[in-house]
């Protein structure tokens, strides 16, 4: 019986390891190319290890002679701007949806549920027309505006606030706390795990988003990370693939590193997209 268990063990590792190699191959190739000298970038099939380390020049080009750093800064600005407005509007509204009886509450929640099914591609055309009419295309505002609304956040936080103990709310009200104070001093701190998870989801989604930036951004000054890498790839602006891969590494790194550092929270944050 023992040999059967051993065989199963070996077989399962073999399958997992083969899969793991396939999963990792693009990352390995990207990293290897990012330190490869330009003359070796192509035709490197049979000698994958670079003959000399050219990482310094490649990363220097990606960092100092390309739009990649600016795209990353823009990405950070856009992601944080979106997140700030999302939290500022969704948290109190979700609290209201969960705990405060107000006229139209049922309808609002119904709309939130409906909104969960609608991706950015649906309102994109009218929003684009409105931004074009007001001369706001190619601005940070245009990049962020459609995502200020987060029906997913509203839904998630509402579910969370529904589980918040009613007695604490009553006690707080008896102590003379206003609802504004209750939201920001009691409910929100209690919701920090959900907020953290939501933040991961939001930042990952908007750091990587291509559709909307591709539509509203035309100048390199407003490029987000995916646009930065596309512009860098476009042969009009650069021809060094080692540097291109260095740029791809830089743009991929923040999220991957965040994942490696805070794995549990990261996975929890992302798996909530499954709800969407």
């Amino acid at each position: 019986m023992r040999w059967r268990a051993l065989l199963a063990w070996a077989l399962s590792h073999l399958m997992l390891a083969t899969g793991a190699v396939l999963m990792l191959a693009p990352f390995v190739w990207m990293l290897l190319t990012s330190i490869r000298p330009a003359e070796e970038v192509f035709g490197a099939v049979f000698n994958p290890i670079p003959s000399r380390f050219a990482g310094v020049e490649n990363y220097a080009q990606a960092l100092f002679a390309s739009n990649v750093p600016r795209a990353m800064v823009n990405g950070a600005v856009v992601c944080l701007g979106i997140l700030a407005v999302q939290l500022a509007t969704a948290l109190p509204a979700a609290y209201a949806l969960a705990r405060l009886p107000f006229p139209g509450r049922g309808m609002l929640f119904g709309l939130v549920l409906f909104g969960l099914t609608i991706p950015i591609q649906v309102p994109a055309l009218p929003l684009y027309l409105a931004l074009a009419e007001t001369g706001l295309l190619d601005t940070f505002f245009a990049l962020m505006f459609p995502f200020f609304l987060t029906v997913f956040g509203l839904f998630l936080f509402r579910q969370f606030f529904r589980t918040y103990p009613e007695e604490i709310l009553q006690a707080a009200r008896l102590d003379g706390m206003g609802e504004f104070e209750i939201v920001w001093r009691l409910a929100v701190p209690a919701a920090l795990p959900a907020i953290g998870a939501f933040s991961v989801f939001s930042v990952v989604a908007h750091w990587n988003d291509l559709y909307w930036p591709l539509i509203v951004v035309t100048s390199t000054e407003r490029a987000t990370p995916p646009l930065g890498i596309l512009a860098f790839r476009d042969a009009e602006t650069g021809g060094n693939y080692g540097a291109l891969m260095a740029g791809a590494t830089l743009i991929t790194a923040p999220l991957v590193v965040a994942f490696l550092v805070a794995r549990r929270g990261f996975v929890r944050g992302l798996t909530m997209t499954g709800l969407k």
Partner: peptide, 26 residues
């Protein structure tokens, strides 16, 4: 196509003169 030309895998390609710097670089 540009990659293949740049590695010496293509004899002749046709393109914009604006790409001269890029192709030279490649």
């Amino acid at each position: 196509n540009r990659q293949q030309f740049a590695t010496g895998g293509t004899g002749i390609i046709f393109d914009s003169p604006a790409r001269l710097a890029v192709i030279t670089n490649l």
